[in-house]
Every structure is written in structure tokens, then in C-alpha cells.
Design a protein around this nucleic acid. Structure first.
Lengths: 339, 339
DNA sequence: CTGTTAGCGCGTTCAC
DNA sequence: GTGAACGCGCTAACAG
């Protein structure tokens, strides 16, 4: 059906080697170049990457495995990674596992089956077990957003502790003393870190942390919604809430709206992640925002470096790189000044 | 490095054919099955899908090419497509082209290079030219969200004309007479359709359409933002605005907030696409919502059918299927009753 | 049920 | 600079 390298050999009378060289940028006589180009044009020839991958044992493609497509964080990350890699001749295969750990393992095998040259992933848990097949194949792996507790690996993170601490500090500086946090549960890396930041900030101000003000759960809109509702319905309700993740922030806002609680007058709010959201909400929401593009670009560059090293050195020092980026805070009008 | 089928042959003493049969679910003696399973386990063997793809000329993977990852619409669609296809033994390779037509063509070639068995795509324009290489390869192609003006193809759409007409009818029923629309430009399929619906509704009510109330542009947050600003600053400003796409809706809301225009008191609003957004905004936004899951599932099923047909028949009637789904309207509180 | 033998489409030695 | 031969890892006929 599709034309192969042999068809263009028959058409030009040249040999397979010559044509292969042409395709891979080697030295070929001008007249031959022309003939080959013409044949390629006429036959609609396109390189069969599958065959090429088999022969070279490299596919020039990177697998990107993320926790969910339905996530603003992910979209920006992927787009930027793709861009960088493409500029360096690499394609990308993107998979999501919808927050499911079994699927995460399965999709990884899918990517390895496609013989990707490397893996960039946003893991859903702190357990690196599912990556074992990748380690065995000895291909570079770069983590985004989350590190593992059981293994040191190359990764690009933000300083979650500091990000959360700063967010809570803003609330404390403005005089809030009953500050709640809605976050993920202990199994979740970023949740642990952000909770730590929350507690550090309270400590600085010598405020005892009140368990009733810490709402742990899944990183979902629903958890944000229900938790915010519970907080707002407390007798001694907090004066401020830190919504420590995007989905949670969304759910929290929905709850506040539904209960017709005015902010910042009746409750002060600070959210996480999506800058645009802060302006969709009225009044504008204070937000901790992650440098998404930078995270993506950094991860892609890190992957390219590792790919380079793997090509040169045979079996030298891996040298784990852990890159930590700073977050910033978007100043909205959703926090009341109590002083 | 990685174990191959030969390694497990050497280890079991069986032949390649037997092992291949085992891998593909053929009949193999129980004792041999055991031996093979054991060897696979010990050697960490995994099928090399690249080699298999070369041999079978089928990769059991579908390419999904979308206009942008940074789009709620896309996330839901992809996840659902993946799910359906996976259940039927197909993997998916997802690419986005970030709204860039050159990239769209390039990514298609990437997918074809990977020898995907079919393509599901959300095209960015009404021009099917970039799909030519796929037609030549004679693999099934399914369109989502947009049809082409220059070629009849299998596709899954919503009835955009009707969706827009219904949205505007809601406004008209409530007594609005100066109704504006913010939409995409003429080159855009859905924009054309939605504008048509807008005009049909006006016609029904015998209202002359005022060019000043039709804001054409790109399907971006920025266009929504600027257009809404212009509309609000008009001397004879509209009493209601139909924001005919998700990004436009986002931008429109930001503008309304920034200018401190109260809705529905000072302006009535109805938006498009993201159901959740409607509750993040206060008061809740009226919304036209598309059956995203259904669109995705339908497209995936359509692809599976075509794959089946392609396998059975040799070169029979293609029979183009155009599936049109209905939208629904989420009732918010963002429209004032003028009667 | 199992083994042998050809390819699948391309890259890569080597000689020429 | 060019050509022939071999191998990448697996499947698909055939024989046995």
C-alpha cells in the first residue's frame, strides 16, 4: 500500500544505502538527491518510523504519562513539553491514567511497548513501583510535581512547603487567627508538603493548629466543595480558608457561592494554581500560582540532557538532579484585613 | 538489553512460533505454557510492540489529534475516548497542535509515521487538506466537533445551529431585544453555525440583526474579554450577551467583573460549554452545555466500527456517517426577566 | 500442537 | 559516493 524505500530504489535505480543516507542527511551526489526527492514526491513516500525504530533501537519519542487530562495544570505542562522536545527532534506520546494506579502501570507498559526513549511523568502517588519496568529498561525518567519517598530520582518540583507557608502567612499578617486548610490526604506528596507549610506558618505566629480546621481528603472538586461547606457551617467557623489545590479551590468557591457567603466580608479565601480563575471570580481571588511553563520547560530540558548523557557515556554516574522552582502569589481582593 | 522472544526460546527450548502463539493467545500445551510463563517472568520479557507493528502492519493504536490541550472540552473528550478504545484492545497516542495549522499537519505525519490504525481528530479549520496523507494511507478517520466544507467525512457533532438558537431564544423569551453575540470568525465552522442559530432566533422574533452587536474574532479568552468590554462600553449597550464558546465565556466574565457590571441586573449573560464554571460564577451562569462524554464515546465507537469494517471488507462502500448530538441548557440566574 | 522459513521496512556495516 | 548482505524482534504461512 504505502511506498517503501524499495519502491524509490526501483524508481531511481539507486541502492537502498544511498536512499537511506539521503533520508538521514548523509552525503549524496546532487543529481541523485534530485532523483530521490522526485521519487519521494511522486510516490508519497514517508519514512516508516516503526521500521526505523526497530532498526535503530531508538524511536526519537518521549512518553509523557500524567495523572489526568482534565486538569489545567496538565494541559499547560504537556503543551510546553511537546514544544521543547519537538524543537530537538523528539516526538511525544501522551497518556493519562485518570488518577487510577492500575491504569498508571498499564499505560507505562504501553509507552515502553512503543519503545519510547524516555519517560516524563506526573505520578499519582509517592510509590515508584509502577516505574520498575522503566528502570529495568534503563531509560531516563523525569518526574514532575511530585517526588517519591522510596527512591531518589530526577525531578522538577515547586517548593510546596514554602508556597503554602507564604499563603498562610498572608492570612496571618492580615490578622486572621482561625485559618483553615483544605488539602489532600497523607498519601499525597504535595498535600503533605503543603500541610507542612501551613503548620510552619501557624507555628511562627505561635498559633496552635486546630484539627477541626484541617480538612483532608481527595484532590477533587467534591472534596473542596464538601469541606468548605462543613467549615462554613461550623459554629466557631474560621475567618479564612486556604484551598491548597486547584480542584479544591473550584469546589470551595462553588460552596461559598451556594451558601451565599460573601467574601471577603464573611470569609477570606486564598486558592491555588489557576491564575485565570482568580479573575473569573468576583472579587478577584488571591492565588498561589505555579510557574507551569517553567516547570514544563525545565523538565523537557532535563530529559534532553539525560538523553544526551545516555548516548555518550556507557555506564557512568547517573547523578540525580532535583530542581525546585519558586511559586508566586497573585494578589486578589478575597482577603479581609482584620487589623 | 531487554529480553527478546529468542531469549525465551533459548531458555525453554521451544520454537519461536510456539512462543509467538502463546503471546497471541493460540493453543499451546499446558506444560509449555508454564515454561514460557516462567521464562517471561524471569527475564522480565515484554513484547516489543515496534517489532510486532512492523510484522503485522497494524499497531493496535489510534492517533488522537486535537486543537489544544489547554481546553476543557479536549480533556474530557480524550479521557473518554481512551477508555473506550482501551476496553477494545486499542491504545491511543494523543497530540495537540496548539491551534497551529502547520503543526496540525506535522503532528498528523508523526502519527502516521507511528503507523496508527486510525485517526480521531478535532480539526482547527474547515480545510481537510492536512488529512490527505491519512486518506492516501486509506486508514479510518473520524472527526469531532467540526465538519469540513470541502469533503464529506465521518464525524460526531453537536447541532450548533440549534444550540445557539435555543440560547438566544431564552434571552428573547425573557424580553431582551438588544442581544449581542461574541463568536469566532467566519473561517471557523462552529462559529458560523452558532452565528446562524443566533440569527435564526432573531428572525423568529422579527428583530433586525445589528452588526454592532456581533463580535467576531478568535476563539480566545482575550477576544471574549475585549469584546465584552466594548459591548459594555457602548452608548446603546445590549441588555444581554451570548458568549458562544468556552474561552469567550471566560474572557467575558473577567471583563464584566473588571468593569463591576452587575449581572443579571445590568447585563444578562449566557455562556457555553463548561458546566462547572456556571457555579463558580456568582450568581450561577446560564450555559449551553455539550454532551462531552457522549461525543467522545460515540466517536470512539464509530472508529471501532470502521476498524472492523476495514478488516472484513476489502474495498467496499465506505458509507459516511455523520452523527449529530443534542446540546442542553443549564439554567442559571444570570438572565434578567424584562417583561 | 509445534518447528522452519520467510519476510515486515529500515539502518548499518563492510567492500567496491 | 555507492552497493550487497545482514540484523532489528516479531508474525505468518507452511510443513511436520
Amino acid at each position: 500500500m504505502a511506498a517503501t524505500i524499495r519502491d524509490i530504489r526501483d524508481r531511481t535505480g539507486l541502492s537502498l544505502a544511498t536512499i537511506s543516507k539521503y533520508l538521514n542527511g548523509g552525503n549524496v551526489l546532487p543529481e541523485n538527491r534530485k532523483a530521490i526527492a522526485k521519487a519521494i514526491e511522486e510516490l508519497h513516500y514517508e519514512v516508516n518510523e516503526v521500521a526505523r525504530g526497530l532498526a535503530t533501537r531508538r524511536t526519537k519519542t518521549i512518553g509523557v504519562l500524567i495523572h489526568s487530562f482534565e486538569n489545567v495544570f496538565a494541559g499547560t505542562i504537556i503543551s510546553n513539553i511537546e514544544n521543547i522536545l519537538r524543537q530537538h527532534g523528539y516526538g511525544t506520546i501522551v497518556c493519562d491514567c485518570q488518577g487510577d494506579r492500575d491504569l498508571e502501570a498499564e499505560e507505562l507498559l504501553f509507552l515502553l511497548g512503543k519503545r519510547v526513549d524516555g519517560i516524563i511523568t506526573i505520578p499519582i502517588s509517592g510509590d515508584s513501583a509502577y516505574l520498575k519496568p522503566a528502570f529495568e529498561r534503563n531509560i531516563p525518567v523525569v518526574l514532575i510535581d511530585r517526588a517519591f519517598s522510596d527512591r531518589e530520582m530526577d525531578c522538577v518540583l515547586v517548593d510546596n512547603v514554602s508556597a503554602a507557608r507564604q499563603a498562610v502567612q498572608v492570612l496571618l499578617e492580615k490578622g486572621h487567627r482561625r485559618v483553615a486548610i483544605v488539602c489532600g490526604d497523607e498519601s499525597e506528596f504535595t498535600a503533605r508538603e503543603r500541610l507542612k507549610g501551613y503548620e510552619q506558618a501557624l507555628e511562627e505566629y505561635q498559633i496552635a493548629s486546630d484539627p477541626a480546621l484541617i480538612k483532608r481528603g481527595k484532590l477533587t472538586v467534591e472534596h473542596g466543595y464538601l469541606s468548605m461547606k462543613e467549615l462554613l457551617e461550623m459554629e466557631d467557623r474560621p475567618t479564612a480558608v486556604f484551598m491548597s489545590n486547584y480542584e479544591i479551590t473550584l469546589g470551595g468557591i462553588v460552596a461559598v457561592n451556594e451558601l451565599s457567603v460573601a467574601f471577603p466580608d464573611e470569609i477570606s479565601l486564598i486558592g491555588f494554581d489557576n491564575f485565570l480563575l482568580s479573575k473569573v471570580v468576583n472579587p478577584p481571588l488571591w492565588m498561589v500560582s505555579q510557574p507551569m511553563e517553567k516547570i514544563a520547560i525545565t523538565a523537557a530540558r532535563l530529559m534532553l540532557e539525560k538523553l544526551d548523557e545516555a548516548e555518550k557515556e556507557d555506564g557512568a554516574k547517573p547523578e540525580v538532579r532535583k530542581i525546585i522552582l519558586e511559586t508566586s502569589i497573585f494578589r486578589g481582593e478575597s482577603i479581609q484585613h482584620l487589623l
